[in-house]
Amino acid sequence: MNNTFKAIAVGAICVATFAATSNAADWGSIKGRIVVDGTPAKPAPLVVTKDQFCIDKMPVNNSIVVGKDNALENVFVYLRVPAGQKIDINPEYASKEAEPVTLDNNGCEFHPHAVLARIGQTLDIKNSDPVGHNTNVNVLSFNQVIPSNSDAKVKVSTGGALPTEIACNIHPFMKAWILVQDHPYTATTGEDGTFEIKDIPAGKHEFQFWHEAGGYLKNVKLKGGATDKKGRAELNIEAGKTLDLGDIKVPASALK
């Protein structure tokens, strides 16, 4: 109702929490670009039989999207907070928490294909198509009809350690993935394969690399090491600096 007010209030609380738990404003960032090494298998074409509109739109299977220069899109890169622990949140993020996360049903595809949400945020599910959809977000136990040109809002209250599927049961070929964490240190790679997470508390953290076709991106070489069997790597974030991982090569065989 009153977003500005809410944002300020939330901000105030976050600042208070922050002040109580952390004294030094030591924050760093991480960035990099994920590319495929080799030629990954072509995802099977979608079988679109329902709704002339969808057939005309010719949606594609987005389970592996490789862009220019072998850039791999839709990789989830995020800081992993072990169960039962908390991480300091930079006040910069306070205003973003109040913003809704938008998921659009557009052209019988979900946009974005890889969704990031924080517990407490609102997921605003839109339908920009002239046909009706339903959006089934298993991790939220949410499955509601979204009529044409309307939207449904759902409060993100439950998360999981890994991304989970979003589906439309009316058009079962439609798929997307959502990662829900209770911190904002998450990213997905864009069209150019790059990702960046800013304002991370300085120190050593475990980062998770995950892709819907490859699952845990394991044994991927990073600067000074590689991800482990569960696609994780411990990386040191230095205060005031950006850790640039450069090009991270994922072997094509890992995407299956």
């Binding site: 339903n134 509601q144 009529p147 809002k153 759902v154």
Partner: peptide, 22 residues
């Protein structure tokens, strides 16, 4: 509320106070 676990989606609100489709 749809039929949980199945493709049948909810047309009413997802929870108390939420906005339903119908």
């Amino acid at each position: 509320s749809g039929i949980p676990g199945t493709p049948m989606p909810a047309s009413g609100p997802a929870g108390e106070g939420a906005q339903g489709t119908l």
